[in-house]
């Protein structure tokens, strides 16, 4: 066990955040690039190991805490957000990271995901979306595509996929982002923004499963596809994409949806593309609704509109109650109200 304390130590490095446990993800798994990005982020934001807690559920990605030399809790299937809630109510000063996946966080733990976002507990939620159940060997997940062939859907998936970003915004999340495992720099930028955000910050990470759902992101995240099929969102910048930065988005007033147009083309009204405002919830919904192949996939911080977090509000009520009460102890409570002497 590493025993150095941070009071006199030099700044931490990526290695300081790696535990001594052998990493057991499959070779080529997208999880490797995520853990690297997270470790790098922790170094860059100056996080303290002792104040950092990774809480996970069940699934491949939920092994994550074991590989971090921080505090970690490997919970039960889908329940990481609930465990994190109790953790934060006991100690709001902790940096809490929730590690979950499309099955853990959107199927068995869908209710907890909904409520941790709505409650707005101060935590970063990494939703590893690989569109498949990896640990149980390849069954379809709530984000699998219609028609996907898996051991539990030999004739193809018949239910429509759940779109995590729309789910999160609908649940009342105040910070929602989307990144792709192989796009390191954007991931680190987004992780930092999520870390700084006070409240629940959910990041959907498109994560490639080389064994059961290989190439899930190829249509929009490879070197050859990403320019035409992905739009990287930057706050304050216009929604422009394309290798030649020749396509933009405007709002179509008729359908109340985003519409792509060729810059300088006949649909260009000269007003320029819509500027990305992460605080605009309607725009966030429209961006989340953009689906391949009709639209490029939006990545980056889609929505960011902070509000008071649950555990801080709970503490505030306690402080208010203390300030306005004469009771200081259980003895005061027991002796209050109707009592009589015998």
């Amino acid at each position: 066990m590493d025993t150095k304390t941070d009071t006199v130590s030099p700044p931490l490095t990526i290695k300081d955040f790696a535990s001594d446990q052998e990493v057991r993800w499959c070779p080529g798994c997208g999880d490797y690039s995520v853990i690297k990005a997270v470790q790098k982020t922790l170094v860059e934001v100056g996080a303290k190991r002792e104040n950092t807690v990774f809480v996970s559920g069940i699934g491949c990605s939920s092994r994550f805490p074991y590989y971090m030399d921080t505090y970690g809790f490997h919970g039960i299937h889908g329940r990481a957000p609930a465990i994190a809630s109790g953790l934060l109510l006991a100690n709001p000063d902790l940096d809490v990271w929730i590690i979950t996946g499309d099955g853990d966080g959107l199927s068995i733990g869908g209710n907890h995901m909904l409520h941790v976002l709505r409650h707005n507990y101060n935590c970063v939620i990494l939703l590893f979306n690989n569109g498949v159940y990896g640990l149980t060997k390849g069954q379809y997940s709530p984000t699998s595509e219609r028609g996907q062939i898996t051991p539990s859907s030999p004739m193809g998936v018949i239910d429509p996929p759940l779109e995590p970003i729309q789910f999160a915004i609908g649940a009342g999340a105040h910070f929602v982002a989307r990144v792709v495992d192989i796009q390191q720099q954007q991931m680190i930028d987004v992780l930092k923004a999520a870390y700084e955000h006070k409240g629940a910050a959910m990041i959907e990470i498109f994560q490639n499963c080389t064994v059961f759902n290989d190439g899930m992101c190829d249509s929009f995240a490879t070197k050859s596809t990403k320019f035409e099929h992905q739009i990287e969102l930057v706050a304050g910048q216009p929604l422009i994409y394309g290798k030649a930065r020749d396509k933009g988005f405007k709002c179509d007033p008729g359908s109340l949806s985003l519409k792509s147009y060729d810059i300088g083309g006949e649909d260009d009204d000269g007003h320029g593309a819509i500027v990305h405002d992460p605080a605009n919830r309607s725009l966030a919904f429209m961006l989340a609704q953009m689906q391949m192949p009709e639209y490029p996939v939006a990545t980056g911080v889609i929505y960011n509109a902070p509000e008071a977090s649950y555990e801080r509000e709970a503490m505030r009520q306690v402080e208010e109650a203390k300030a306005s009460s004469d009771r200081k102890s259980v003895t005061d409570v027991l002796n209050q109200g109707f009592t009589w002497e015998v």
């Binding site: 329940r79 109790g86 306690v318 109650a321």
Partner: peptide, 30 residues
């Protein structure tokens, strides 16, 4: 609350128990 007691009406029974576990992990009385 004036004694510092925090109550959390969780989203379901499972969450209530899991939150109590998280509380205990953090060193408080869950």
């Amino acid at each position: 609350k004036d004694l510092g007691v925090i109550t959390f009406q969780a989203e379901d029974e499972i969450a209530a128990m899991c939150a109590a576990i998280g509380t205990a992990f953090a060193g408080s009385l869950g």
